[in-house]
Design a binder for these strands. Sequence first.
DNA 1: GCCAACGTTGGC
DNA 2: GCCAACGTTGGC
Length: 157
Amino acid sequence: MNHWLIKSEPDVFSIRDLAKAKRKTTHWEGVRNYQARNFLRAMQVGDRALYYHSNATPSAVAGIVEIVRTAYPDPTAWDKTSDYHDQRASPENPVWSMVDVQLVEIFQREIPLDELRTVKALAGMELLRRGSRLSVQPVTAAQFRTIETLSHAKIRP
DNA sequence: GCCAACGTTGGC
DNA sequence: GCCAACGTTGGC
């Protein structure tokens, strides 16, 4: 099982929106970066991902989701009315992929970015790299566990 | 709203 | 293949 981190702007689709969705599941559409797409394609059913709120106050890891369907064509790519429309895409040549994710847990306590930066065990995280903007990225099992544990801590460190 | 860092595009 | 111009991401 692999671990991941996926970003969403809460103004667009927050983890609470996911909690309200049918079966607490959504299509992870709109990824338009090749590196991120390739990580989507590497996801397996049962993999877990940290749900990160970007462009938020504060930006933070907000919870955990599980991959419940592996990558398949993202139809918003050839939908002219979609914000995610891409000229090059068509049903015959989808170009972009999405997976389905299901809510596992909303953290009792979100872990803000500035706190993540203080945790030694997380020093190698892609998210924390200067200038990093990758919206789908792998995390190690140890990094995943560290963040999960922080979210359950009763007292702020 | 600003702007640094990044990815993509397209001229050459 | 280089690289300048451009558009986007995302922290602040």
